[in-house]
């Protein structure tokens, strides 16, 4: 593990600790994971696929009238969607230019 990886991991940990004072532990944990994903870089493809799958499961639970289970899967679907979009955001920033940016 190189030094920059250690720094990135430490930043994620610090964010988790700070956020857990303001948000729920689950939300703080997720935010920290999300940050780690963005810092370390990940292919958004998997995140989108998982989000898709989880939302389909949520739909199935709605059919079974299990609303709280559906809500649980929808939240996790949303989390993975967020990972995918933010990973792409990170890629966009790293690439530095956008095709539609005039200036």
């Amino acid at each position: 593990m190189d030094r920059s990886s250690i720094v990135r991991a430490l930043i994620s940990l610090a964010v988790f600790i700070v956020l857990s004072f303001f948000l729920t532990v689950l939300a703080a944990f997720f935010t920290a994971v999300l940050l780690a994903v963005v810092l370390f870089g990940v292919d958004c493809k998997f995140a989108y696929l998982i989000a898709l799958l989880l939302l389909m499961i949520a739909a199935l639970f709605i059919v079974l009238a299990a609303t709280s289970a559906a809500e649980f899967f929808a939240i996790w679907s949303f989390y993975f969607l967020a990972i995918g979009v933010l990973a792409q955001f990170r890629d966009g920033i790293v690439r530095g230019t956008f095709e539609d940016l005039d200036s």
Binding site: C44, K45, Y48, G84, Q88, F89, D91, G92, R95, F98, E99, D100, L101
Partner: peptide, 9 residues
């Protein structure tokens, strides 16, 4: 997704 992150809007 490949086109998505190249487009800022």
């Amino acid at each position: 997704r490949d086109r998505f992150f190249k487009n800022r809007k």
